[in-house]
């Protein structure tokens, strides 16, 4: 039943992830994978561990147990004398280029123009010549509908515009996958649509995406698969129509009735 643009290759694969913050177990044996070209929407009540799971994928969080693999490569750890040890920051940084991230609070660099925000990583990390980097950035700005804002500073933009720039900034590194952590939660309601539209376009181009969101209508439209989390565990997953029309787990039902009604 999966659309042909999704390959069988597992781009992201997490197995048996456990994560503790002090004495609280925040992720409790999570298995999670994303195939190439797939759009996975992650839903769950607040505090269920969605953000933490996302942050484990690009090693913004360390894990206490389990493995994170991107393109079959172990993230954050390397073998030393037959044992896994924490990898060097430089290597981790290198691995992070495969996976872009879009934050709830945008996190644009306030001291740089929109164009600089988008070009800094390709210029410094991928050694793209400046002219090429700027052309690519302008192309991305056209894609997110902001070609006239290239020389504005983030503080001069609305929240919706900032988030669209943040998406362009992440895309500029040409990542294999993009992670979105509640990208519209910090926005005024009238700006939610413009950001979701950009994400919908992106999904249409075959981009691999993991999206944490409370926008259930959007989730139903763009998701290939919906994963439901509660208390640090994956409690249910499946095609969006099935999850939304026939949720199996009582907590999924409670969640959906709380958001939809």
């Amino acid at each position: 039943m999966k659309p042909p643009r999704i390959s069988d290759e597992r781009l992201i694969e997490l197995t048996g992830i456990e994560k503790w913050f002090g004495k609280t177990k925040v992720l409790d044996g999570v298995d999670f994978h994303v195939r190439k070209g797939e759009v996975v929407v992650l839903i769950g009540p607040s505090g269920s561990g969605k953000t933490t799971l996302l942050r484990c994928i690009n090693h913004l969080e360390t894990v206490e147990a389990g493995q994170v693999k991107v393109r079959d490569e172990l993230i954050g750890y390397r073998m030393r004398r037959g044992r896994l040890v924490a990898d060097y920051e430089r290597n981790i940084a290198y691995q992070r280029r495969e996976v872009g991230m879009v934050f709830q609070r945008f996190n644009l660099f306030p001291h740089m123009t929109v164009l600089e925000n988008i070009t800094i990583a390709p210029l410094k990390l991928r050694d793209v010549p400046r002219q090429k980097a700027e052309e690519d950035a302008m192309e991305l700005l056209r894609k997110v509908g902001l070609p006239d804002k290239a020389h504005a500073y983030p503080a001069q933009l609305s929240g919706g515009q900032q988030q669209r720039v943040a998406i362009a900034r992440a895309l500029a590194m040409q990542p294999a996958a993009l992670l979105f952590d509640e990208p519209t939660s910090a926005l005024d309601p009238e700006m939610v649509g413009e950001v979701l539209a950009v994400m919908r376009d992106l999904a249409g181009t075959g981009m691999t995406m993991v999206i944490v969101t409370h926008e259930m209508g959007f989730a139903r439209q763009v998701a290939d698969r919906v994963v439901v989390m509660a208390n640090g565990q994956v409690i249910e997953e499946g095609e969006p129509d099935r999850i939304f029309s026939d949720p199996q787990h009582p907590k999924t039902r409670a969640l959906l009735s709380a958001v939809l009604h």
Binding site: N58, E89, A93, R96, R97, F109, A121, A170
Partner: peptide, 18 residues
């Protein structure tokens, strides 16, 4: 400096010095 700035830089793949 806002923690989000560190995270955005890291997520782009910048090593610490950069």
């Amino acid at each position: 400096v806002d923690r989000g700035q560190f995270e955005a830089a890291k997520a782009l793949g910048m090593p610490p010095a950069m």
